[in-house]
């Protein structure tokens, strides 16, 4: 307790924990919402999706924005989060209370989200490290590029979809439950009633976020550009929409559609 030479992590434990808590909401949580919003435009059609992704790619200073508001905060939250998750001695088997389950799930979903974020980044953002074309090179046909990434890159489509279902569900829970603990940590929700109401709202949010993510996933993996006629599908819709990615991977057979 009266450690004579506490490390930096220990000395600034309070401040770091508060920043960790804050970073989960701003900017990471906001980014999560924004990201789900962009993805779900796929549901409105490939063209809408392309337009919105293009807008993001047109942002000035995009690499700086990415670094400052996405990569660094997630790295900070993730690295500190791992040390925090190590700290807990889970005991939900002995004390199977609802809140203890949420505490436990907050840690389990942290690990899943960590793995998922890494996989997701390699899958789309950094696939070029493995010789795949860059995402930006798909412009202006981002939708098709993303779809191809699910259907024809590295893993079978069903496996990608499961990875994303689990990852999205974990992130949705982690963020929603995190809002509750954020409000306790900062003293926004103090009393039992406040906490109960907040938990209900967070539970609803969690379900909404999951469904929202699944809808986008469904759209990105099953929708085709402008509702094609049956004959067009039979011919293989991709022929109209070749992307740099496809150039490398040959046109997938129409039979797969």
């Amino acid at each position: 307790m009266t450690d004579t030479t506490p490390g930096l992590l220990d000395r600034y434990q309070f401040q770091l924990r508060r920043l960790h808590s804050l970073s989960g909401i701003v900017p990471i949580g906001f980014f999560l919402l924004f990201h789900l919003l962009t993805n779900s435009t796929a549901f409105l059609g490939a063209e809408r999706y392309d337009t919105h992704v293009q807008q993001i790619h047109d942002l000035p200073w995009l690499p700086v924005i990415e670094l400052l508001f996405i990569f660094l905060p997630i790295a900070f939250h993730g690295i500190l989060g791992v040390t925090i998750a190590w700290q807990g001695k889970l005991n939900v088997r002995q004390y199977p209370y609802m809140d203890n389950w949420r505490y436990t799930l907050q840690r389990i979903t942290a690990w899943i989200t960590l793995a998922f974020v890494a996989i997701h980044l390699l899958h789309f953002r950094f696939a070029y490290w493995f010789g795949e074309p860059e995402y930006a090179s798909a412009a202006p046909r981002f939708f098709d590029f993303t779809r191809q990434g699910f259907l024809h890159l590295w893993l079978p489509a069903w496996l990608w979809i499961w990875i994303y279902v689990v990852g999205v569900a974990a992130a949705a829970f982690h963020f929603s439950n995190g809002i509750v603990t954020f409000c306790i940590t900062w003293g926004i929700a103090v009393g039992f009633e406040a906490r109960k109401k907040l938990s209900l709202v967070a539970g609803a949010l969690c379900i909404v976020l999951m469904l929202w993510g699944f809808v986008s996933l469904h759209a990105l993996t099953t929708m085709t550009r402008t509702a094609p006629g049956a004959a067009e599908v039979a011919r293989g819709n991709e022929q109209r929409i070749s992307t740099p990615y496809m150039a490398r991977h040959e046109a997938p057979s129409a039979a797969r559609e």
């Binding site: 506490p6 309070f14 700290q87 807990g88 809140d99 203890n100 505490y103 603990t181």
Partner: peptide
């Protein structure tokens, strides 16, 4: 160090 930041809100 070792203060309130150590709580993980498990509420046990």
């Amino acid at each position: 160090p070792g203060g309130i930041a150590g709580c993980g809100n498990a509420q046990n």
